[in-house]
Amino acid sequence: MAPRLKLFLPLVIFVVLAGFLYRGLSLDPMELPSALIDKPLPAFSLTALADGRALTRDDVIGEPALFNVWATWCISCRAEHPYLQRLADTGIPIYGINYKDEDQAARRWLQELGDPYRANIVDREGSLGVDLGVYGAPETYLVDADGVIRYRHVGVIDDRVWRDTLEPLWREVLAMAQEP
């Protein structure tokens, strides 16, 4: 390599690294894309928390719904819970996915804090969570009437998240369900 080119090598390396740094800093750390958007909710056969009966994908699809991944060990889930109850009280169907939790603790939680869920799917081993690509709790999936995942939200659902993001998508999914 010519002596003059060697002088510019550190500058070239610096520019390349600065470009990678700039790109990394411009990404939204809360945005975790899901490979399952516009794909069917994964098939599963797990038990219901309330009564231990078997639940499958076919038992929970047929109308638009939210699927909320939660656990008693999740501090953010406790913060989110009252808002989910408010949504359920307005008639929005929500299914819980009790993720890597203890059944007794989950039942006690729901008795104390209220139960916004149509049903709770016990995902003790995290198998459904793996199929969904869950990073942790809470996560919420918007699923249409055909059982297709339309959106994934990572983190707590609150008034701002519902109003700015989920509610407009919810209205779209409802409109799709009402089309002949």
Rank of each mutant, 00 (worst) to 15 (best):
M1H: 06
M1R: 04
A2R: 12
P3M: 09
R4C: 02
L5I: 12
L5F: 11
K6P: 01
K6T: 07
L7C: 03
L7Q: 13
F8S: 13
L9G: 04
P10K: 11
P10Q: 12
L17M: 14
L17A: 15
A18C: 10
L21R: 13
L21E: 12
L21V: 14
R23C: 03
R23F: 13
G24W: 10
L25F: 14
S26Y: 03
S26P: 00
L27W: 08
D28M: 02
P29H: 08
P29M: 12
P29K: 05
P29R: 06
E31V: 15
E31D: 12
D38P: 03
P40F: 06
P40R: 08
L41E: 01
P42D: 09
F44Q: 09
T47K: 14
T47G: 00
A48R: 11
L49G: 05
L49P: 12
D51C: 10
G52M: 05
G52P: 13
R53V: 09
L55S: 07
L55D: 06
D58Q: 14
V60W: 00
V60P: 00
I61R: 07
G62S: 05
A65K: 01
L66Y: 01
F67A: 01
F67G: 02
N68A: 09
N68L: 07
N68R: 07
V69Y: 02
V69L: 11
W70D: 05
W70C: 06
W70M: 06
T72G: 05
W73G: 05
W73V: 08
I75W: 04
C77Y: 04
R78E: 13
R78A: 12
E80V: 11
H81M: 07
P82K: 10
R86I: 00
L87R: 02
L87K: 03
A88L: 04
D89K: 10
T90Q: 15
T90K: 13
G91P: 10
I92L: 11
I94N: 00
I94P: 01
N98E: 12
Y99I: 09
K100V: 11
D101H: 07
W109K: 06
W109V: 09
L110W: 02
Q111M: 10
E112V: 12
L113Q: 13
L113C: 00
L113H: 10
D115N: 15
I121N: 05
I121S: 02
I121H: 06
D123S: 09
D123M: 09
E125C: 02
S127K: 14
S127C: 02
S127P: 00
S127F: 09
L128D: 08
L128M: 11
D131M: 11
D131T: 08
G133F: 05
G133K: 09
V134C: 11
Y135I: 14
E139N: 06
T140K: 05
Y141N: 04
D144Y: 07
A145D: 00
D146L: 08
V148C: 03
I149N: 02
R152C: 04
H153P: 05
H153M: 07
V154R: 13
V154P: 03
V154K: 08
D159C: 03
R160V: 12
V161P: 04
W162H: 13
W162I: 09
R163E: 15
L166T: 06
E167T: 00
P168C: 06
L169S: 03
W170N: 04
W170L: 03
R171C: 00
E172A: 01
L174C: 07
L174A: 02
A175H: 10
M176C: 00
Q178V: 03
Q178R: 15
Q178C: 01
E179V: 06
E179H: 08
P180M: 07
P180D: 15
